[in-house]
Design a protein around this nucleic acid. Structure first.
Lengths: 216, 216, 216, 216
DNA sequence: CATGAATGAGAATTCATTCAT
DNA sequence: AATGAATGAATTCTCATTCAT
């Protein structure tokens, strides 16, 4: 489950701390110039460490990119469950999950962009790791959605397909942020996506549930 | 309007032909390994020419990437107008335009992906060219949409926003093709996007128009 | 005054030491094959370092050439003042300065040749630096000459013109060294040039001074 | 005696004509940017021919440089004898020869500079040819000088040495032309060099001859 | 004869990675 | 543990030279 990236350093706390330093610097630089155009030296400078240090916490440059991906996924896995914890109504939970997902995108614009732009920069082994994590992250949306279907609130030919639509919408906020930013708030963007989706997917019983909610 | 890329070769037919050769090879390699990981030598080999030849038709490697973008845009500008020519009903025209756009994405999966992944690989001057063309290409959707609004078929707070949603959906086919490919046909994907959009945007008169069409 | 050439290395002693290594190797190779025909790899090999190292002490190949020029000028500026220090008689001082200049040429045959052959290899910015230094170096001759004129020992229509003649003579030792080397000693060459110059430039009072000197 | 440079073209007049075209273009470009920084394409453009054409009249780029040297020497060999023909007095002849030499330099500033800057750009075989021609050209000065010595007008320990001094002075006009140009005329420069030389080399009988000449 | 497109060897330069301190 | 100087493989780009037309 937890992916192991080799480090010459023993102390795990130190490893965590240093890697965070490096990842933050890397996200900043990758987002600006892309993975290939960013040098280890630049990352080191941005992080306030030496190039040599990076190589004691990481095997090679690609590992840094992988760490960037992992850090992003960890945030999804931490924040979304947190935000939907305690919600029992399936429809409410689904909506909360989608909102949480979008908010995660919103606070990780750089990482999300990097994910789209640099996935090809990983060689097969590491690419596989990232793909598996992506699927696992999708479950944060698909499971609540499934529950709505089971509860008869949503009708949906193919859950996975729908999930991808929702996630694409969420990612759209990062992909075209330069455009959306000045025209709509993240909340507006979220609600628009949500209502567009529910509009064409809610069952009559779902509509009722929704209306009831809106009133409450 | 037409962007000039310098070439040492005079004969414009020859330039066109050779550049096409090179662009095809480049798309193939860029899609596989990304722009930076692809060497000029590889492109040359794939195109069946010498590395030196490329530099007689192009100033530098970035020009090759730019040509890839330009070729893609040209296809949109050619094919979409062709497919909507002669349609007078606004709603029909809009749907045809969206279908054409998606089909263009469908037959240019590689270029579309490259566009998302390598936009940062262009330096400001060339990046600007691409951005301008992107806006121009968006008009192929936004104008028919605008006409539907004028005709009272579609209600839409913000045309640009809606256009971006539609285009994001279209690009989604390329971005997540590895996933969609095995689950839904391009046509299914198009109709789903279309109906999702119309579902939440048609005016009553628009619904009527649509139903009438469906019958006819 | 002191020209700054960028280096990635901080420690100035190390920079000085490494650059000296590189310059020595470069002088050797440039003198043999010229600037353009010499590759960085060759210089690196001659210096016993890697090609990459050179680029941590220098921005590009032209910087190496500039360093070669600078090193030569530094030698003139150091050695000539040293050799004329403490001489008060203007005529004696002038002769000492000219001798010192020629000796500098004599111990920097390669650099002097390179200066004549490769001045065009520098692009305007750096060329200007070298020209300014050349003028500054000429002053090492023109000033003592001026003093002789003021003292009434030498009559000279145009000091600059005369300076150039003297310097051309000095450089001649390097330019045609393959010829002179086997026919005349540097000292002979110096005295010949000197007496030729004085012969046609001394005032009567200058002649007297010279004769007095010769006796004493 | 006449150096053979291979050409694929048979007709010798055509060869002469084309080579002249090429040499003129080459001198222009070499003088501006140096031999290495000048491309065959540039020379071809300047000459108004195609790059391919050059290679039918010449084996390689170095041959072009050699042709530049040869053309210069030919001018010396043609013009100097012409200008001293018919002068019988040795002293007058010597002075005429030196003047002619300097004038040759004056009307071939570019070639003279190229000769100093690019001699190293020739590989041994061709370098030898040029050196031999240089020695042969020196004879145009050294022989009249020798005659003056024989006639008892000039006293000179070493003819070759003196010749080199004179030639160095002549070349100085080209080497430092940017400086001399605005301060002295070529004639002034010639006479200055001449008088400086004669001042310290004339025998009493030479002085008398000179004075007699000056009067007449 | 002349052209100019095509070739490919070769050069400068960069940068991930190592390792002595 | 951390540093940063050094390495050298790899890449882009140039240009002398060839050759089909």
């Amino acid at each position: 489950m937890s992916i192991e990236i080799e480090s010459q350093i023993e102390n795990p706390d130190r490893v965590e701390w240093r890697r965070e330093q490096v990842v933050n610097a890397a996200v900043e630089r990758f987002a600006q110039n892309g993975y290939h155009a960013t040098t280890i030296k630049e990352i080191a400078e941005t992080a306030g460490v030496s190039p040599g240090l990076i190589y004691t916490y990481v095997k090679d440059k690609e590992d840094v990119l992988l760490l960037v991906f992992l850090a992003a996924f960890r945030r999804y896995q931490t924040e979304i469950p947190q935000k939907i914890a305690g919600i029992s109504d399936p429809l409410q939970k689904f909506r909360a999950a989608f909102r949480a997902y979008c908010e995660c995108v919103g606070s990780n614009l750089d990482s999300t962009l990097i994910a789209y732009q640099e996935s090809k920069s990983l060689k097969p082994g590491r690419r596989k790791i990232v793909q598996d994590l992506e699927i696992k992250t999708n479950a944060l949306i698909s499971e609540p959605l499934q529950d709505c279907i089971k509860a008869g609130y949503i009708a949906c030919a193919n859950v996975d397909l729908a999930t991808f639509h929702l996630i694409l919408h969420a990612h759209g906020w990062a992909l075209k942020n330069w455009f959306f930013r000045e025209r709509i708030s993240l909340n507006g963007y979220i609600e628009e996506g949500l209502s567009r989706f529910l509009n064409s997917s809610l069952t009559p019983s779902g509509w009722e549930r929704w209306r009831a909610e809106a009133k409450g």
